[in-house]
Design a protein around this nucleic acid. Structure first.
Lengths: 185, 185
DNA sequence: ATTGGCATGTAACCAGTTACATGATTCC
DNA sequence: GGAATCATGTAACTGGTTACATGCCAAT
């Protein structure tokens, strides 16, 4: 159900193929939900059979044909209904944090490296988010954008993802410093 | 596997029952992993049969007996090994953000309420984290603690969870303000 | 020649959620 | 008298990951 709603919300941006969606939900760019291509193709089929989305086939030259999905009336209604349902607590689950928690009984150098890797990933994602932000703003100031744009959902979630990566960076930098001081004792 | 490692890391704090662990992994307090009691009892059984943990039964009066689990040598080794394995990207999956993304086609009042609910939860969690932090520091300054404590893993993950809730609060407050301004147009 | 992008899927498996079940004690 | 806490589990289901499969085109 959760993936279904994320797909419906994404299709508000306009029609998309399974492949398009698999890029949007890829863990390296996603800012509100992730999913693998396998999950998506399966879910799209079931959503189509339920009438929540419709597909049209686009023939391309030098590229495989693709099926572009878009929301139906029923899909819109289902999405609207979803926004009125109570949300449950979000579970924090982060393998890196499990490693950090275990650092005192683990391999400090390996955990140090894992944090450094996360720092790299976070910096890359932050740069991507900033590029997406500039693209959404399209030259307008934030205030102007928020006051005039007909859609603000994508901007608001992007800002949450951005803050998350900024926090990752700040935490990782500080944690690496602490570990280095301890290692130098 | 992931839950298994989280349990091993938690048992570094000392022996615990399934019930104790179910409280530690409850979504309302967890700062690095969450799990339900059902998951835990099942996983603990399998970990015991693999020799990663051992149980001792403690008889209590006016309370049911309990089984306290602790790490074995093999469990310690498995945890150490885990810290050396490459970590994969953490998936962002947040139902609230799906709602926010869909707000332009959804029920704005309901989404507003959902964000306000999240804000409450985040404030509660932050207060809890601060209490845990004070408990860990036990009167010492942070610098003193980091320099002298034999374990720092729990403190470092707690600080990440704390930053996460602070970001939740800042984002939610700002987002509510934006939505209210739009509603007042 | 090989890697990477475009485009779509099947199958087997593993992890997580929800519902159900039991029973004593303590607190309001 | 009813809800919350302590303490442990089974069973059915839903959701997510990993491995495997195909085939063309563009770029290095």
């Amino acid at each position: 159900m959760a993936l279904r709603n994320a797909i419906l919300a994404t299709l508000l941006d306009g029609e998309a193929s399974g492949y398009d969606l698999s890029k949007a939900f890829d863990a390296s760019v996603a800012n509100y939900w992730t999913a693998t291509p396998q999950q998506l193709y399966k879910e799209l089929e079931s959503m189509e059979s339920l009438g929540l989305i419709t597909a049209r086939v686009v023939e391309q030259d030098r590229k495989p044909n693709k099926r572009l999905f878009s929301l139906t009336e029923a899909g819109h209604a289902a999405l609207h209904d979803f926004t009125t349902q109570p949300a449950k607590l979000t579970a924090i689950r982060d393998e890196l944090l499990v490693k950090v928690r275990a650092i005192d009984a683990g391999d400090p150098a390996a955990v140090h490296q894992a944090i450094a890797d996360r720092l790299d990933v976070a910096r890359t994602k932050l740069a991507r988010y900033d590029a997406m932000r500039a693209h959404l703003l399209a030259g307008r100031t934030e205030d102007d954008y928020l006051a005039t744009s007909d859609r603000i959902g994508p901007y608001l979630t992007l800002m949450r993802g951005r803050a998350f990566e900024q926090e990752n960076i700040a935490w990782a930098e500080r944690t690496l410093r602490i570990l280095e001081q301890r290692a130098a004792r």
